[in-house]
Simulated assay, not measured.
Amino acid sequence: MASGPDSSDFFDLLPDPILLLILNRVSDIKTLLRCRSVSRRFNSAVPQADSLLLRVDRVISSSDDDDGVSFFSALFKSLLTSLHHLVSPPPTGKQPPENPTSAAPPPPNSPSQILRSFDAIASLRIELPSGDLRLEKGTSIKWVARFGKTLRSCVILAFKNGGDSTAADSGGGLKMRVVWTISALIAASARHFMISEVVREQHSLSRLVVYDRDNEGTVIMDKDGLTESRDSGGDVAAEETNAGGMWWRNNRTTVPAVGMRMRHEARMELSGGMVLEGATLVVVRPVGGGGEDDDEWLVEEAFGKEGVWAEAVQRLIKSRSYILEMNSF
C-alpha cells in the first residue's frame, strides 16, 4: 500500500465484481470473517461472497464431559440401536419418537448460525474434522451419497486392508458387508440432518457438499435436491444420546426403503500393488429408483475415472451382483 498524504488503498481502485471474485477465491469462512474488520468496504462486501468453505474443527464444545463422549461414538451407538431395531422390531403399541423439529435452536457455533453472516451463498462446502465411523481394525469405507428431501442414492466401497495382519479373511461374509452398508447409510443420513437448517435458511444455495478430512464419506445436494428438501421440510428420526455438549443433536434423516445391489471380490490387487480383502461395492437407491443399467454412471459419478478407488470400483462393477432390500429405518 502506498504511503503519504495522497496515498489511497489500492483495493479501493478495484471494481466490486473483482473484489467479490477475490473473496470467492479465498472461500474459507474464518478468513473471510476476519476480513470484515479490514475496512468498511470489506465489511459490506464479505457477506456477498457466494462460494464458501466452512471447516468444522470440533463437533463438541470445550465443555466435554468426563467420559469424553464424542459425536462419532454417539453415532456408533445410534448404529447399534438401529441394527437392534431392524432385527427386533419394537413391541406393538410402542409410540414412535417425537418429531424433533420443535427442538431448541442450535447454539451460536452451529453451521446455520455462522452462515447467517452471509447473504448470497450459491456454493457451499462443509469440511468435517474426521470420518464418522470407527469399525473393526483394518476396515475402510468410502461412500458418496446424494440427497433431496431424503436419500436419492449412495455408492459404497468397503474393504479390509490386505497389508494388515488382521485381514486374513475375505471381509467377514455377507453379515459384515451388510453392517458396512448400514453404517455408511446412517453416517450419510446423520450428515444430511446436520445441514437441514442450513438448507432451509440459505435460499440462494444451489450446491452443497459435506465431506471429511479422512476422505471417508461425502454428502452432495444439487439444486434440484435442495429445492425438494426445502419444499418438503425433510423427514427425520430422533436418536436421543448424551454426546458431551455437541452442537447438533444425534438425529438423522430417515432412510427410505431401499434396494441394494452388492458386488464382491474376496481379494483384489490393484495396479499400484495395494491389496483389498473382501472388496465390496454397494449401490443403494430407494425402491423403484432405477435398475442395474444405472449403476455404472452412478459409480463413475461418485468415484470418477482415475485414481485407486476408481480402479477398484470399475473392476467391481463388472462382477456378479446380488440384490438385497431393506425397509425404511
Rank of each mutant, 00 (worst) to 15 (best):
A184V: 00
D224V: 11
T218M: 13
N161K: 08
R213L: 13
H203V: 14
E197Q: 14
I156E: 02
S206I: 10
H192L: 07
E216Y: 05
D164R: 01
A168F: 10
P256G: 11
V199C: 09
D231H: 09
K175R: 11
Y211N: 11
S153V: 06
R200I: 11
D231L: 15
I195N: 04
D212H: 06
V210P: 01
D212S: 08
D169K: 06
E239R: 10
C154G: 03
D222V: 06
G244D: 10
W180L: 02
N215T: 10
V258Y: 12
S183T: 05
S229A: 15
G234V: 05
R207H: 13
I182N: 03
A243F: 08
G245T: 12
L157N: 01
L205Q: 10
R200A: 13
A167S: 14
W248A: 14
G171F: 02
V144W: 00
G244A: 14
G217Y: 08
A237E: 15
N250S: 15
H192T: 10
A167F: 08
L157W: 02
I186C: 04
A237T: 14
A188S: 06
G225C: 07
L208H: 02
F147S: 03
S170K: 03
V209G: 06
D224C: 11
G172S: 04
E239F: 14
D214S: 12
V209E: 08
K223M: 13
V258Q: 08
R177H: 00
I220Q: 12
L208Q: 02
T241P: 07
S229C: 15
T227I: 14
K160Q: 12
I186Q: 01
V198E: 07
S229K: 03
L208D: 06
W247F: 15
V209S: 06
L157K: 04
T181Q: 00
V199G: 02
G217D: 08
V236F: 09
R146P: 05
V178P: 03
N215K: 14
W143V: 01
A168R: 09
R191I: 12
L208G: 07
M221P: 13
R177N: 02
H192M: 06
T181L: 03
S206W: 09
I141Q: 08
P256A: 12
N215W: 12
G148C: 06
W143E: 05
D212Q: 07
G148V: 06
V199E: 05
G163Q: 01
E197S: 15
A187W: 03
G172R: 02
S189C: 05
V255G: 08
M176A: 13
V155I: 12
R152L: 10
V199M: 11
T241S: 15
G234H: 05
V219I: 15
T218R: 11
G172H: 04
